[in-house]
Structures are given as structure tokens and as C-alpha cells.
């Protein structure tokens, strides 16, 4: 027994070194598997509040660009306004009494929330965006994040007032997508090279594709509403070892200048997941 204590005292520094190494690697491995860091909630609050202070200064430099983007989006939305379309007069008065169901009997599927970006990286292999909107303001894990131009990523961590988004520019991000013309489904990934370009895979070589084609989110992706722009085709290469194209896309979103984004929640997803998780009865 005494010898053990002598051993520990003698090699205390080495043992402490080994313990710290193991701790680091365990944290990293655990995080890579679950995308949920230990103590992420507390750390998120602290780093989030520092990021916010920094962002207050940084915002001034982007005011002009922001105004332009908001103006563009406003114009687009104004074009969709009802005033622009004339309806025949109806004799009945329509009263909307519920947000869940509209007058045509459509069920609400997606809920949009605005959020401000307070931190954003593009230089790493795994990039994240931090938003100043958290669980208290209705953010949940797995919500989709969309900018004015295209999609941004998926929420992976939520603390009380902040949330962390796995950006599209992340080695582990994968978004179900389709070519707008031919409706062929593929998946969009990032190869870690250039923040302006992402890769679309799993499109069969028989599909007609041309440079400049739009790629949008597919109807299979549960968190993203379908038909949101992801990017445009920039370069088409044939994969010699498989039957698929490797298509390089130019991202629709400019990840260098994210300021305000929208969070999208699929309010019916729980129901879908419950159904898909239930054991199959007819077999």
C-alpha cells in the first residue's frame, strides 16, 4: 500500500498529464458522436455573452450591406402581398380563429422565427454559427436555419438565451437536396476546402445537369422546408468509380456576411418521428 502512494507521488506529474490527455480526448470523442458538448449550456452562456459584446461593434461595419439585403427581401415580400392580386368579392366573411389551421383547411407545418447571428466562423474544418435566441425564445434542437439568400445549417445546441448552429460548412453536415429541374434527390456535403463551394453527391450520371442549375432542399429533409435554395451548379465531374456525378455547387448563402437569419421549426416532425419509430405491423 505504501509503495502505491510512493509511486503516485513520484510520478504525479506524469499521471496528471495522462489524466488531462484522456479527459481531452474523451470530451472530443463524445462531442463528435453526439454533437453535444459537456457543460455546453454554461459555456454557451458565457461565450455567448462575450460574443454579443464583440458583435455590437462588428455590426456597425455591416450596416450598409444589411440595409441592402433587407431592402431586397422587403421588395420580394411586397411582391407577394395580397394587394398585388385582385380577388373576386366574396359574400361571406372569413374569420381566422386558429393559427394551426388556415381557412382552406391546410395544417401549419413550418414555423419561422427571426434570430440575430452573434458569432460565425468559416476558417475551421468544422464551422459553427451562434444565434442570440435560445430555449426561452422557442428554439429547439434540430431546427433549420435559413438566411435571406439560402440555407445556413441546423441547430445542435440550445442554452437559455443562445443557440449554436452546425453550419453547412461543417465536415459532418449533410442536407438532403434535389436538382430543381429534374427533382433528382442527392445529398449536399462540404469537403472542407473553400467556404464558397459545397459538393452535391448521389446524382446518377443519366440525369441531365447543366452549369447554373439551381439546387434546392428536397421534400425528404424533415427539418428544412422543401424548395429552399442551397446553391447553383458550378462544376460537374463524373466519379470514375461509381455511377454518380460529383457536382460542385456555389453556395447561395454568403457565409462571410451572416447577420440575421430565420429559424424554421417543423411542428409536425414529432408526429412523423413517432410514426417512423413505431414497429412495422404488417409483415
Amino acid at each position: 500500500m505504501k509503495n502505491i502512494f510512493v509511486f503516485i507521488r513520484r510520478y504525479f506529474n506524469f499521471l496528471f498529464f495522462v489524466v488531462l490527455q484522456i479527459l481531452s480526448i474523451v470530451l472530443l470523442v463524445q462531442y463528435n458522436q453526439t454533437h453535444q458538448a459537456a457543460y455546453a449550456g454554461i459555456a454557451n452562456e458565457i461565450t455567448g455573452s462575450i460574443n454579443e459584446q464583440y458583435n455590437k461593434i462588428q455590426n456597425y461595419f455591416h450596416l450598409k450591406e444589411n440595409n441592402r439585403l433587407l431592402l431586397e427581401e422587403n421588395t420580394r415580400l411586397k411582391n407577394l402581398l395580397k394587394i398585388n392580386f385582385e380577388d373576386p368579392d366574396s359574400a361571406r366573411l372569413v374569420v381566422i380563429d386558429s393559427l394551426i389551421r388556415d381557412t382552406l383547411g391546410h395544417q401549419r407545418k413550418y414555423m419561422w422565427l427571426p434570430a440575430k447571428v452573434i458569432n460565425n466562423t468559416v476558417a475551421e474544418q468544422m464551422n459553427y454559427v451562434t444565434l442570440h435566441r435560445g430555449a426561452n425564445q422557442g428554439v429547439k434542437k434540430d431546427m433549420a436555419v435559413v438566411s435571406t439568400k439560402g440555407i445556413v445549417g441546423t441547430v445542435i445546441d440550445v442554452s437559455e438565451n443562445y443557440s449554436r448552429v452546425m453550419s453547412l460548412l461543417h465536415r459532418n453536415s449533410k442536407v438532403s437536396s434535389m436538382l430543381k429541374n429534374s427533382k433528382m434527390i442527392g445529398s449536399v456535403e462540404w469537403d472542407g476546402k473553400d467556404p464558397h463551394y459545397i459538393t452535391l453527391r448521389n446524382i446518377p450520371k443519366s440525369t441531365p445537369v447543366a452549369k447554373g442549375d439551381s439546387v434546392v432542399t428536397s421534400s425528404y429533409s424533415a427539418n428544412f422546408p422543401s424548395d429552399l435554395l442551397i446553391g447553383t451548379v458550378d462544376e460537374i465531374a463524373k466519379d470514375p468509380i461509381s455511377n454518380f456525378f460529383i457536382i460542385r455547387l456555389k453556395t447561395a448563402t454568403n457565409f462571410y456576411s451572416l447577420e440575421y437569419v430565420n429559424l424554421v421549426e417543423n411542428v409536425q416532425w414529432d408526429e412523423q418521428r413517432r410514426l417512423e419509430a413505431a414497429p412495422i405491423k404488417n409483415q
Partner: peptide, 10 residues
């Protein structure tokens, strides 16, 4: 914790 890669730089 700032770069959200726990353990990678530690």
C-alpha cells in the same frame, strides 16, 4: 469552448 471543439486544442 469558444470554437466549440471541446478537447481538440486542450
Amino acid at each position: 469552448y469558444f470554437l466549440s471543439t471541446p478537447g481538440l486544442h486542450a
